[in-house]
Design a protein around this nucleic acid. Structure first.
Lengths: 128, 128
DNA sequence: TGCACAGTTAACTGATTGGTTAATTATTCC
DNA sequence: GGAATAATTAACCAATCAGTTAACTGTGCA
């Protein structure tokens, strides 16, 4: 079986391949943010941002909560972890062999469910 | 600065977003392989594979050694690690905050340059 | 009611992608 | 030299992408 066919990884890595989308994820951090707030730093129309958010959402990298007329986005740990695990597996494979692979997997999967949003005090953002 | 502009990451994640290219990396594992050997499992023309390899190469994920009329490809650890580090940083950021981030970075960068082949007796790799 | 606001959808454009077949370059071997 | 081999480049195609402007949906509020 040449290609195991993992469309989730396709979408996740593709979403991560755009600097705007990565930047959105970065600025999202652990907290929740509205669309306008996320869009502010970018010299780009609202529909463009909307599309980027849809790509991220359909890749499973963020989730959306709609409250009235506002949409709140949040990073989804699980999907990002899938991408990380793929790379981690590769690296462990050619770099350290199996003991290290086991070690890696154990370590990474150990911190799957996020602790209830600890220090969300860094809600300050910089303008361009 | 909205987008830190990291074209390397753009290219790396983009290269990883295609299942054929990921599969090539997987089948490459730690060893070196020729183009024909890599192409064999795929129901795809030679030029198509050639293009995929070029994408991987220009993304810095593989390197090419030319010997006579044969090209030998090998995974490049460093670039794949850059992608991993980006994800790792994000995860550490929203998941565990900064102490865990430091821990992560320390741990991951520790194994940057493959230790002078520690238990490198396992230079043999098995195909799946 | 009426209007402003938050955000998306629609329709379009130029650029890029992933694949094809045909032609090309360079090497090996008789 | 000439044929076979390993791989790439060239030229093309349909599909997708990232962005635009314009129109739309739905909510809040005076």
């Amino acid at each position: 079986m040449p290609r195991p066919a993992e469309p989730d990884l396709d979408a996740a890595f593709f979403a991560l391949s755009d600097p705007t989308r990565r930047s959105i994820l970065e600025s999202l951090g652990g907290r929740e943010a509205g669309v306008a707030e996320l869009a502010r730093p970018y010299d780009m129309s609202a529909p463009a941002i909307s599309k980027h958010l849809r790509v991220l959402e359909q890749a499973g990298l963020i989730t959306r909560r709609i409250e009235g007329r506002q949409h709140f986005l949040r990073v989804n740990p699980d999907q990002l972890q899938q991408a990380q695990l793929w790379i981690e597996r590769q690296r462990a494979f050619w770099e350290g062999s199996f003991d290290r692979l086991a070690e890696h997997l154990e370590r990474v999967t150990a911190q799957t469910s996020p602790p209830p949003a600890k220090s969300a005090k860094s809600t300050k953002h910089r303008k361009p």
